[in-house]
Amino acid sequence: LFQGTGIVDLGAAFRRSLLLGIIVMIVTVVLSVSAGMAFRRKFRAQSILFYSAIASLIVPSIITSLGISLEFRIIDDLIKAHWNENFETSMGLLTSGLGAHLTWTLPFGLLIMFAIFNRFDPRLEEAARDLGATPWQTFRHVVLPII
């Protein structure tokens, strides 16, 4: 089955799904941690951004996923049409799947990060900075282990 001798190449499908899962995981973690760090400070339109990020939990998810996957496919086709018909984007077949999967995973990642940073004690970061840590060292040695 995994050698592709039948009608369906299960090996290629499994590898593509595994690659898509890894990419979605990395993007979700990076965006969720970044958004959690950003939402620690107040900024204009914070509530609008929060509710739009969480909207896919409220709206029927299949509709949202189909809409975003279609949007990513259209963007992929526009990039191909603009450059060259033979031009292949860096995402390839994963483009529409990435958008659809992110609509499912990103709100959950954001909610988890918001909950973690809501109970996060900023005095820990302040103590690290008082001891001479750079912002990157503070994030790597204090914030990341707490997350």
Rank of each mutant, 00 (worst) to 15 (best):
T5R: 14
F139N: 05
R16F: 15
S47T: 01
Q46P: 00
D130T: 15
R123F: 12
V27C: 07
I54N: 05
E71L: 15
H82Q: 07
S56M: 07
V24K: 07
G11L: 00
S34D: 01
L31C: 01
S34E: 04
A38S: 00
L1Y: 14
A53E: 11
L110W: 04
I26T: 05
Q46I: 04
F39I: 00
M91G: 12
H141R: 12
L144K: 04
F72A: 08
A115T: 03
F87G: 07
E125Q: 01
A45V: 03
F87Q: 05
S32H: 10
A115G: 04
D76R: 05
L93G: 11
P107A: 05
L124F: 11
V33T: 08
I75M: 12
R44E: 00
I58N: 09
V30C: 01
P135M: 06
S61H: 13
P145C: 01
G97P: 02
P122A: 10
T105D: 03
R129C: 08
F39M: 06
M113A: 01
E125F: 02
D77A: 10
I74P: 14
I75N: 07
I146P: 08
L98H: 04
E71Q: 14
L102M: 09
A12K: 05
I62M: 14
F72H: 09
F72T: 08
I112L: 14
L98Q: 07
K80H: 10
W136N: 03
A45G: 12
I112N: 13
A13Y: 10
L66K: 13
G4S: 01
I116H: 08
F2P: 08
A128L: 03
V59Q: 13
F72Q: 05
R73C: 13
S65L: 13
T28A: 03
H101Y: 15
F39W: 04
E126Y: 11
R129M: 10
H101E: 14
L111C: 00
V33I: 06
A38V: 05
V8I: 08
L131E: 12
G6L: 08
E126N: 13
Q46W: 04
L49S: 01
A53I: 03
G99F: 04
R15D: 09
P135A: 07
M91P: 11
D121G: 00
V8H: 02
G92T: 01
F87T: 00
E88K: 13
W136V: 11
T64W: 11
G11I: 03
G92N: 04
L31H: 02
E126V: 02
G109N: 04
T89H: 02
